[in-house]
Design a protein around this nucleic acid. Structure first.
Ligand code: FES
Ligand code: FES
Lengths: 146, 146
DNA sequence: GTATTCTTGAGCAATTTGCTCTACTATGGC
DNA sequence: GCCATAGTAGAGCAAATTGCTCAAGAATAC
């Protein structure tokens, strides 16, 4: 029930890309420097995210990474599932554990399932674009109050 | 972002106790047998839960474990926090990771914080008593349809 | 006092986390 | 075609966590 550094760093990187969406590829070294992510580790995460279809990458000079879709269509759920694997247990429920009294076991499995569904809808409500908007708002109000 | 065997086994054990609430102490061996939990491991978990104030334990013959509070007052949040530690990162945010651009970093920290709060309220909505009621309902309808 | 039941803490293999490093591949510009 | 610039792939690795087991001890009912 935690978010590992993958999810944290990964979201930072995607947020970085979201702020530069539509302005050409961003190099991993730039992301790493700005967001304070160990570059070797970030490269790994970027590959994972590309394989998950969240970003696209171009090699060679002037290459880099960019969001594969617009920021409004990428949710926290997408990010966390790509980086941390399926939420809660396995796909459905934990088949690796020893079961107990069937009625009780099934009931609890259901609870976990419902919980996962609820958490996923919760996560689906926040997009990368929401983060960008929040940042702009904040920048605006800071200006305002100075 | 997963629930480990601690949370799973722990909830099973508490559910077992909830179904026997008010009927005297239940021995760990009985819980282990019914719910299919390795007994040595279960003993560990029971101690953790006692230290968290969820159960009370009595030693000696006819000893055992019982809920410290009534099942309506014990929520999934209590269970998971006791067994899995604080939800999401540390207490507030992950101070172990390298920060990046302060505006971005603070924004993302906020997102994690809000997320944790939302997940906690979600978890707080289900109590052990809810599980017991669901089981009774289910048993009822099974009877009915046979 | 003795059988019963919880308590404490050590120990341990297997897995996961959080990285680093090396080698390779693709591409743009000259 | 050459070469500098990026991304890609995967091995490797120390440290932490997971999922347990086990042995020794302490409390209590009878
Ligand atoms: S595996 Fe946990 S209750 Fe089914
Ligand atoms: S530690 Fe992750 S953004 Fe702050």
């Amino acid at each position: 029930m935690r978010i590992s550094s993958k999810g944290d760093y990964g979201l930072r990187a995607l947020f970085d890309l979201a702020q530069r969406y539509g302005k050409g590829p961003v190099q991993s070294e730039d992301i790493a420097r700005r967001q304070g992510i160990p570059i070797n580790y970030l490269n790994q995460l970027l590959i994972t995210m590309r394989r998950a279809g969240l970003i696209e990458s171009l090699r060679g000079p002037q290459g880099g990474h960019m969001l594969a879709r617009s920021p409004e269509t990428i949710t926290l759920r997408d990010v966390l599932i790509a980086l941390e694997g399926p939420l809660l247990p396995g796909d459905g429920t934990r088949e690796d554990l020893i079961p107990g009294v069937p009625e009780d076991h099934d009931l609890i499995d259901e609870v976990w399932s419902e919980l996962r569904a609820q958490i996923e809808t919760l996560l689906s409500r926040t997009t990368l674009d929401d983060l960008c908007q929040r940042k702009r708002q904040r920048a605006g109000s800071v200006m305002y109050y100075i």
